[in-house]
Nucleic acid binder design. Structure first.
Lengths: 189, 189
DNA sequence: CGTGGAGTTGAATACGATCAACACCGGTGG
DNA sequence: CCACCGGTGTTGATCGTATTCAACTCCACG
């Protein structure tokens, strides 16, 4: 049984459906640091993380990383541009830890009606998260963004270098370090 | 013929399909300033703009507006939270100009398989735009964001008060005003 | 006419970026 | 086992950009 099936299907499904799903999925073991998608690539895959940790990120004009999202166990990650845009992917995707993933061929969705409903459902949820992220970036001061991050990704602080969290929050490592200093100082005052 | 059908359907469709679509849509005339959705509302609708101009926005802790998106003619606007989140809508939606819209009941999508494919398609495109917006907010300096805005929403500069564009870009009206001053000064130098 | 909202400009301020120095490990190789 | 090293995080000084606050102009609209 593929983990993605659990994630994707809400109820029971007929055998041919399951089989088709299974055929669109390939299991993969990725080493720490391994790159799954590069900017400009035209991919057809989404990645479901069974164990480990992936991330997606961009490089700006100055070559600085900006982390788009983290994907720990049970999360789905991919770059929409990689199959929607002529220019290919906007993001890089790589592994922060050794991970076991299920690579999911997107063409599945265009082939089979039965997938559309649930795909749409999941797609809406992702969109909702993005909406919240945009709002947050525009209207929330750094400190709250950091606290929200801690809620949203519990225990990821332990697993991810701090500078990457800074990158996700849209600030420099120094800024986050100073914020954390302030926070502990506030607590002990 | 409803405009939304053109937008939504790629090819021909059978008559019952069209009829069902038509039943899920109600035409509405909205006055300038009219509010269609408030934070916390549990809506079931998306709005397709036939003419005029809508926008969605949040209010932050200090009561400041942050515009999430503009929707001129031919655009679709809605708040995903309004039907996905327990807390209801995250955004307000109102009309910046007198507008003619088609309100689309979301339940349509859950009822009828035939809609899923195209809904998924459109949903992906919206998601893609959001992805780009997030990247842009994190990694692009104000000046470029403004120029990108001009590309993305041609002629909207004429129709929208400048302070709202500032709000969309995530800065104060003063900051945008100064940037524009710099830009014209650059041109004439 | 006037009145208020929109935009511009300037001065002071705040916040994060940048640059640089340093402490703290967690390996690696001698 | 230890010395060394590179990467990570902290801290401080300085700089730059956007914010805030305030004053002023300009219209659009009553």
């Amino acid at each position: 049984m593929l983990s993605f099936q659990n994630y994707f299907l809400q109820g029971a499904a007929d055998p041919t459906f399951l089989q088709e799903l299974e055929e669109a999925i390939t299991l993969r073991q990725v080493a720490k640091g391994q790159v799954l998608l590069r900017k400009g690539d035209k991919g057809r895959e989404h990645y479901f993380v069974k164990s480990g940790l992936l991330r997606s990120y961009t490089l700006d004009a100055k070559g600085k990383e900006h982390i788009f999202m983290f994907a720990p166990e049970g999360w789905l990650i991919g770059d929409i541009g990689s199959f929607l845009s002529d220019k290919g992917a906007d993001l890089y995707i790589d592994a922060l830890e050794e991970s076991e993933i299920e690579a999911l061929d997107n063409r599945l969705f265009s082939r089979r009606d039965a997938f559309h409903a649930e795909a749409l459902n999941k797609s809406s949820r992702r969109m909702y998260m993005m909406q919240k992220r945009i709002i947050s970036l525009m209207s929330t001061p750094l400190q709250e963004r950091y606290l929200d991050f801690l809620d949203m990704y519990p225990n990821l602080v332990q697993r991810v270098p701090q500078k990457m969290i800074a990158s996700y929050l849209g600030v420099t490592p120094e800024a986050l370090s100073k914020l954390r200093g302030d926070l502990t100082r506030q607590k002990n005052a």
